[in-house]
Amino acid sequence: MDVVINVFVALHIIGIASLLGGFLTQMKAMGAGTARFVPAMLHGAITMLVTGVILVGLNQMQDYSVNNIKIGVKLALLIVILGLVYVKRDEEKVEKPLFGLVGLLTVINIFIALLWT
């Protein structure tokens, strides 16, 4: 079962890489005011949501310790990110503060995952 959990951890990391990578590729455009939410950002957020839910379930099935408060905070941040990206996905330009907020929430989500023990 540990192999399955590790596969989903890898997929979760691929999701965050897609979300953050999509954001980083638009940084120059954000400076020019022409940034947009690219499909990689939406797909990465959805991948994170699905794999994260599966990971919680797999860990609980194995009776591993799961910090439900940490998971709840990460889930709340991800839902906000996913909602913003989904609603604004078809717009040609996204406002700088909104685009920056998605990047900030993504980085905060990463730091919570790594530093909250």
Rank of each mutant, 00 (worst) to 15 (best):
M48T: 02
V66I: 07
D63V: 09
Q26Y: 03
R36L: 12
L20H: 11
I14A: 14
M61F: 15
A35T: 00
T51W: 00
M1H: 14
V102E: 13
L84R: 02
A17H: 10
I79R: 01
G31M: 09
F99A: 02
T47A: 07
I54Y: 05
A29R: 03
F8M: 10
D90Y: 14
G103W: 02
T106D: 09
F111H: 09
V66S: 00
L78F: 08
L114I: 12
L75R: 01
T117D: 13
V107F: 08
V107P: 09
V53Y: 02
I81E: 06
L55S: 01
F8T: 06
A35D: 00
G103C: 11
I79H: 00
A40N: 09
Q26V: 04
I71D: 04
T25A: 11
G44K: 00
P39Y: 15
I54L: 08
M30I: 02
L101F: 10
V53E: 03
T106L: 11
W116P: 08
V50P: 00
F111M: 13
I112A: 05
I69A: 15
F111Y: 13
G103L: 06
Q26G: 05
H43D: 10
I108G: 06
V38E: 10
I69R: 10
V85M: 09
K88A: 04
K93C: 06
L11Q: 04
N67R: 11
L42S: 10
V38K: 07
G52F: 00
V85G: 04
Q62L: 08
I71N: 04
T47Q: 00
Y64Q: 10
Q62W: 08
F8P: 03
I16D: 08
I110R: 05
L24H: 09
